[in-house]
Design a protein around this nucleic acid. Sequence first.
DNA 1: GTATTAATTTGCGCGCCACGCAAGTTTGTC
DNA 2: GACAAACTTGCGTGGCGCGCAAATTAATAC
Lengths: 191, 191
Amino acid sequence: MRLVVERGLENVRVEDIAAEVGVSPRTFNNYFSSKEEAVCSVSVDRRSQLLDALRARPEDEPVIEAVTGALLGLCAAGAPDVAYLARVRAATQNPGVWGEYLKAHVAVEEAMTVEIARRSGTDPETDLFPRLLAGAVSSAMRVAIGHWSEQVWPGSFSSLVAHVLDQLLAGMPEPAKTEEPGAAPQPAATR
Amino acid sequence: MRLVVERGLENVRVEDIAAEVGVSPRTFNNYFSSKEEAVCSVSVDRRSQLLDALRARPEDEPVIEAVTGALLGLCAAGAPDVAYLARVRAATQNPGVWGEYLKAHVAVEEAMTVEIARRSGTDPETDLFPRLLAGAVSSAMRVAIGHWSEQVWPGSFSSLVAHVLDQLLAGMPEPAKTEEPGAAPQPAATR
DNA sequence: GTATTAATTTGCGCGCCACGCAAGTTTGTC
DNA sequence: GACAAACTTGCGTGGCGCGCAAATTAATAC
């Protein structure tokens, strides 16, 4: 990640990364099948943290509360750090990373699905509830992270996550139209 | 897609595809930056269909109804065909295709975001509602398609999509635990 | 301490791929 | 028929992903 931040991924060869860790390029490829995958592998590893947090929730808690609670707990523990933000930037600029980034999110989503299914006592092959909830929440997290990386959110990362989860799980009520106070209402879109 | 169905993507070279259409390999790469991208490009093209369907909805309709209506309309017009199912299969088996497949879904999602923002009169850079709704709906569609490809859903594709959208937009109520009628209740998970 | 076995790392090689560049070809316009 | 724009192509290059087998390192048994 340091090399990526310094030079941009396209200027980092597999050879460079391998050399940096004192390992042969071939060994690098034993662990990662591409540098893009390597960049996103940390995101995949968030799985275990999330699963731990989920399993730590009381067993009789409603699933949705368990999920939101676990996620908020993780966010409170630590907002995305510099390396993470760099990864998000790389993802939005480099098509290869973008794909791997999405794959990482879905990998976390799948882990969530399994735990949701267990908790709700449903079979994810039959009942779509676990996949739907995991998917919606995962997607909301992706939105939150993306927005956080824009650095325009006034509050904490946790509060942003709380905001998106609230909005999501309230059944997505349509918001009031935004009109800056004191400013003229947005003209109707002309095209 | 025919070649992919016949041999599997890993046994199809860019050269083969190019030859099949009577074009040089170089030209292929002028349009697609990889064969995986080519395989999923059709999915990306669903964007325009969705946008057309969305724009055809009455302007004063609530956003959510417009979105679900447009999607259901498209589904009624045609369930995923053989090529589409082959693509989904390829995506679940081939990591490269999987990434491109997700990228395609997100591309559609982004188009949806723009239209939702326009309709709801919100600025997607400020208000997260458009991204959240588009993300949740897109994710639900992904779930529906994945489940449809398992060929275990008894009804039509439309009914499956209607099902997932209903469940999603109802705020994801926790379902009753599944217990086959007449069968013994599932034993509590032992691990 | 040494022998045996398993796990990791490494070098080599091959086929394929993405893409910049510049030359060629087709298409459209006046 | 001349000109320009758009599209196609060949060539060359650097890099990548991975199978395979040898070599090194670590773990275990005796």
